[in-house]
């Protein structure tokens, strides 16, 4: 495995919109049993929010923590499956909004729910290769589930942003290793011009989510010489509350290491932001020297896994901007009718 020489997270930020809908409320509309709901509630964007605005929210928090002038950011990569424009990059709008333009490369990544960690891979590589001084990787989504579909209970809105630099002295955490595990596995897709995705129900489990995550993590640990004892926190893609816990079990990871970053029960599946918001939540509480295992999953399918070691800088930088809990706790419940308006399920 080719080693990462120098890639550190110098700033991070998570954003969750204000509005929540309870799974119970969605179940009420569609007459579903309320005893087995995949999450408690999920985050819903405001009428004036989209992937770009949430990406900017998260990016601005990350910049506050990084304490760098935005003009030094050489790349802005946005991973999302819900870009506001089918053609026209989200990255340019984000780069403009944070003041990173014009000496910057900007691109959008799409790989279902792992587009965010994919953006992070490329930013890490650009920084590590010395092509840019700082880079911004974002995972953001305003995910949509077909009304009445199982996905409607979880498809949520949120964004996470990471600024990667080279200097460990200004870092909050060091990216020690990453790997990917990818196959052609059609468990979930959306064709062009379609509003809602299709999925293959239980096929999304074993052959898709679990197979890819387990192999990605195993490869990472094996290739880079880590053992489970090196890991203090494990963060997985969080399509619901159960899957990450099962993944941990399959890998033999203590559930107590998985629960601190497990937030899907309160905010839902934020797709490209999902595992990254888990990472944000862990960074909000981790101590210097601790190691975090991060493993995303993107339908189609693949998993990116990372080993991230927390640095001394975390303590000071954490306090420079609002923690994720601030946004998780800032919530207003809406009913299905308001939800339908917010998510443009009412066509005007």
């Amino acid at each position: 495995m080719v080693r990462i020489n120098s890639a550190v997270i110098v700033g991070y930020g998570g954003y969750v919109p204000r509005y929540r809908i309870k799974s119970e409320e969605i179940a009420r509309i569609w007459g579903r049993d309320k005893s087995e709901l995949p999450v408690e509630e999920k985050a819903v964007a405001g009428l004036d929010e989209d992937t770009v605005t949430m990406a900017v929210e998260a990016a601005k928090i990350a910049i506050k923590r990084a304490g760098i002038p935005p003009s030094k950011i050489g790349a802005v990569h946005v991973g999302t499956e819900s870009k506001p424009y089918a053609v026209k990059p989200s990255g340019t709008i984000v780069a403009e909004a944070i003041g990173a333009v014009p000496s910057v490369t900007a691109a959008d990544f799409e790989f279902a729910c792992k587009a965010g960690t994919e953006a992070l891979q490329f930013i890490t590589s650009l920084v590590d290769a010395g092509r840019i001084e700082y880079g911004l990787a974002i995972g953001a989504d305003t995910a949509q589930g077909r009304p009445g579909d199982a996905l409607e209970f979880t498809a949520a809105c949120g964004a996470a942003a990471f600024i990667i630099g080279r200097d460990k002295n200004e870092g909050v955490a060091e990216i020690e290793a990453w790997t990917s595990y990818v196959t052609d596995t059609p468990d979930f897709w959306r064709r062009e011009y379609e509003r809602y995705p299709h999925h293959t129900a239980r096929f999304t489990g074993d052959p898709a989510y679990f197979h890819h995550i387990v192999n990605s993590v195993k490869n990472l640990l094996e290739n880079d010489g880590y053992t489970l004892n090196d890991i203090d926190y494990a963060v997985f893609h969080q399509p619901n509350v159960r899957f990450p816990l099962v993944a941990a079990k399959l890998l033999g990871i203590d559930l107590e290491k998985t629960k601190p970053g497990l937030i899907t029960g309160y905010i839902g599946n934020t797709y490209a932001a999902s595992s990254l918001l888990g990472l944000v939540k862990v960074l909000d509480q981790a101590k210097p020297g601790q190691r975090i295992l991060l493993a995303s999953f993107g339908s189609g399918a693949g998993s990116d896994s990372y080993i991230i070691r927390v640095l001394e800088g975390i303590e000071v930088k954490r306090s420079l901007a609002p923690t994720l809990d601030k946004f998780i706790e800032r919530k207003t419940y809406i009913d299905y009718a308001i939800y339908a308006r917010h998510r443009k399920k009412i066509l005007m």
């Binding site: 989209d50 605005t53 900017v56």
Partner: peptide
């Protein structure tokens, strides 16, 4: 904060 201020109903351009 940055938000969508409006969208054009025909051209679909988004103004932030």
């Amino acid at each position: 904060t940055l938000r969508k201020i409006r969208e054009d109903q025909e051209d679909k351009i988004i103004a932030y």
